[in-house]
Amino acid sequence: MSTILRGLQFYPGKTIIHKLDPRVKLVISLLLMATAALYLEVTIITMVIVVEALLSIVAKVFSRWARTVYGAAPLIILVFIANFLFKLSMPGQSLSFQSIYESLQLAYRLVAFLASFSIFFLTTTPEELGMALTKMKVPYMYTFAFISAIRFTPILAEELQSIVDAQRSRGLELEKGNIITRLRRYIPILVPLMVNVLRRSYELAEAIEVKCFGAKKNRTYLRELKMTTKDWITLSASITLFTVAIYIRYFSRISIP
């Protein structure tokens, strides 16, 4: 889980991808996901993943991006098993190569989804994301809650590690015993973590209140987002490619291997 979270954390850089307008990056990520959702064919989803890999190379975050995909392996396996069992439970279905293949396709699609998210979060700061959402008319209250959640994830991960260290130093062994015993052993970890989270949220609420959060409906910003020529070109190219993908999927007779 922590590997996936690390893959969704901003990594500073000065590449062309980092410099793109966050709204354009958000649209590209959503279009890549939509393309993966349009097709189940392994070739197309592989192409989407290759495009994502190329973007991560240009953004110089390939190893982190790859780690996200690798870290998501247990989740992907879980999706595969769940799909496979669901298919088997359907009336008239039996254990066949087809059912395994179809379950694999769905799990593979998840890789494309996660990888697309990863590129966006690796190259966009929570503040930029907040600005993009606000520009898209999302109420600032929700945007702020969302970016705060992202910003506090690494801090929460650090606190979790401190708590685990403190409790292990008191002889708590998380690895021993059956599943029920192990779950019960997580209580000394979860209670202090919950207390810390609640305390932090109260402190944050006080801190933003004293800084007049919500005093005026229309906020002003230190930095304003402005679309440049590069942004427009990238956006147009992405939308064109996506239109081609829709055309091939629904209107052409090209057969996809």
Binding site: S162, D165, A166, R168, S169, L172, P188, P192, N196
Partner: peptide, 20 residues
């Protein structure tokens, strides 16, 4: 860690990390 902790007790900076 459990067997070493029997010999070495560490009091961490944030005491509340222990409380539950």
């Amino acid at each position: 860690v459990a067997s070493l902790s029997r010999k070495v007790g560490i009091v961490f900076q944030n005491a509340e990390d222990m409380f539950f």
